[in-house]
């Protein structure tokens, strides 16, 4: 006789082994869309998805050439389209974020390391282009003290013209398991002490940064 507890353990186990890469990519996509800052690039997941997409593309081509039932082929094509959409959307959200926080990402090692090689290249080229564009159109025509891209004037102590991701943005999340105080940063122990499983919670992003990075929370 299965008790309720062992049933829920079985549930977890079932979801664990049946979780497909598409499901993981969907999670990464949702989190990336909802989080105010750029998250760690899912390089191995993206690699696996790319391989599966290639394989599926080949399959569709071969099936078309071999006159396999067009209905089946069209269904495979739909599955392929959906996966490609997810992947594109995931990569695109990241590019938008990189563009938005360009200068900040480049001068912060922690963020820079979250980007893939290609994204880092994109960020550098984007900065160069944007930098020279702003220089030519505006900055070079301003008085000497006001020519920095990063600062309002040379008297500014910090880079006060660089947009910074706002970690105090509120996000909606759902814990995959019960979270106790230990799962959160001790810094925020006053604000957040626990989180029930599966309960939708509106919460300040920085409070849940740690469990999000540990995969215990999904953004919705």
């Amino acid at each position: 006789m299965a008790t309720e507890e062992s049933a829920s353990v079985m549930d977890d186990y079932e979801t664990l082994i049946s979780t497909t890469d598409v499901e993981l990519l969907k999670r990464a996509w949702r989190n990336e869309k909802a989080a105010p800052e750029i998250l760690q690039f899912e390089s191995s997941l993206v690699q696996r998805i790319k391989e599966q997409i290639e394989l599926a593309e080949q399959n569709v081509e071969i099936s078309e050439a071999n006159n396999i039932d067009p209905l089946t082929v069209s269904l495979y094509q739909m599955d392929l389209d959906r996966t490609q959409f997810l992947l594109r959307s995931y990569l695109r959200v990241r590019l938008q974020k990189i563009e938005k926080y360009l200068f900040y990402v480049l001068k912060t090692d922690e963020y820079l390391n979250r980007l893939s090689k290609q994204e880092q290249m994109f960020a550098r080229r984007c900065t160069d282009d944007l930098g020279s564009h702003l220089d030519e159109t505006v900055l070079a025509k301003l008085p000497d003290n006001y020519q920095s891209i990063l600062k309002q004037s040379i008297t500014s102590e910090e880079d006060d013209m660089v947009p910074v991701p706002r970690l105090d943005t509120f996000v909606i999340c759902k814990a995959k398991q019960y979270l106790s105080g230990l799962d959160f940063e001790p810094e925020y122990s006053m604000e957040i002490t626990e989180m029930e499983r599966d309960l939708l919670t509106f919460v300040c992003y920085k409070f849940i940064k740690k469990p999000l990075e540990n995969g215990k929370i999904d953004l919705v």
């Binding site: 909606i172 309960l199 939708l200 919460v203």
Partner: peptide, 22 residues
Amino acid sequence: STVTWKNMSAMEVNIIRAFAGR
């Protein structure tokens, strides 16, 4: 500073996301 909702659906969440978040 934290607000929870039981059983709220995807569209409902999405409608209030921007406003409630801000």
